[in-house]
Design a protein around this nucleic acid. Structure first.
Lengths: 225, 225
DNA sequence: TTTGCCATTATTGTTGACAATTCTGATAAC
DNA sequence: GTTATCAGAATTGTCAACAATAATGGCAAA
């Protein structure tokens, strides 16, 4: 028996994919940067076929682009794509917000407050990695309250797609602080059973990161795209 | 040089996945039925790792379920899941219908008419396989006109998830005829630039297959689930 | 200096063999 | 007759070596 219990391979695949996802989101891996299977394999101490599955997962999420015999590279989203994705996100997230039963259960509130305290702490100490995780957890918990897991799944998948577009905001203190405030306001709206306010907050919560990304993109590469 | 040009493996994976998808949808593969990797591999004359990727794809689509060391089996959707998925489908498809620019381009109409003629012909001669394909093509073309590929992608993925629930309707002449009539009506609404009618048609188009599936499921397994 | 070609290297794709696990059916104990 | 146990078969998971392809860099010709 090994000292460390041997994980099921499915779990290892997920783990590798998650770490790579974070590194893309946080901008440690730049667009166009290639993902070399063997390098990743040795880094995570897994076999190459595990890395292959993880990369396939990232491809499905839209974070990475694969070309036959040329491998995978971090994907670059065009401003148009970003706009389209955010447009659908807005529709789905407001839809979910409209379906959250009000008043929410005390447990749901407690969970959100719990997560949000972690998020606030991460923002406080400038830990963008923990901030990213807590942010994702908050949105999952919030929209999870709508009671339709399939809707939540779609929201998650769309959020994942633009994660790559968030490296510009995920490390920016101003945006992080703003997100934190938004989250607290959402919790207040839930407590007050103010659906209109909640929906509005969800909608407005999306714009800043979208606009920041598009602006920085157009600045770097010109207005085309 | 081979007589048949050798396909890229990515294409072969897709092809295998598509055929298996059809067989699940048409009920040739029953729920709980296992998918044996080697059998499939020899049937399609591909290597096992190709089959594995294809099955992983089906798992992502939600058509099969995988268990560690036990393989994949056709997935059974509970009535609750079906209801939840259709609820999101309705939201997304009406959303897309609302975004289709009116009046539509003549080319778009021509394309839809073209596809729909194939669909009608398939219904006429009772070819459920061709009917399934044409039906899918019609919906892709229709919602594709909304101009947001990411929205279309979500609609497709949701449709795929409940494909397995459609084996009851996909082979039923009454339902096929009804779908055919609905499609023609949609084309008419497009021609008339009658958005309200179009949206209504899209919404009502979904109910029959959902209700039929749920009813047959509850009849077979009782009202639980 | 630049450009085109070629050999070398780096990387991905494919394969078959083997290991680990689960399923099946027969046998024996109760 | 039923249940427990176990060997063998069937099936999935893992691996390392090999093949195929694309990237790299050097060298010669202009």
């Amino acid at each position: 028996m090994d000292g460390v219990e041997r994980q099921a391979s499915a779990a290892r695949v997920k783990q590798v994919a998650n770490v790579l996802e974070e590194e893309i989101v946080l901008g440690w891996l730049q667009p166009r940067e290639r993902l070399i299977e063997e390098d990743i394999a040795s880094r995570f101490e897994v076999k190459r076929h595990v890395v292959r599955e993880a990369i396939a997962e990232l491809e499905r999420m839209g974070l990475v682009e694969r070309v036959q015999n040329k491998g995978a590279a971090v994907r670059m989203l065009s401003p148009t794509e970003v706009r389209q994705i955010y447009s659908v996100r807005e529709a789905l997230e407001t839809l979910a917000a409209q379906q959250i039963p009000l008043p929410p259960s005390p447990e749901a509130i407690d969970l959100l407050v719990d997560i949000q305290e972690q998020h606030a702490a991460a923002v406080e100490r400038g830990d963008s990695r923990a901030g990213f995780r807590a942010n994702m957890a908050f949105h999952n918990a919030l929209f999870g309250a709508c009671g339709n897991p399939h809707l939540v799944e779609l929201i998650q998948s769309l959020a994942q797609k633009v994660h790559g577009a968030r490296s510009y905001t995920a490390a920016n203190p101003v945006h992080l602080a703003r997100a934190r405030d938004d989250h607290w306001a959402m919790i207040e709206a839930l407590k007050a059973s103010d659906r209109e306010k909640l929906v509005q907050l969800c909608r407005e919560h999306l714009s800043p990161s979208r606009d920041t990304y598009i602006a920085s993109l157009e600045q770097r590469f010109g207005k085309a795209g």
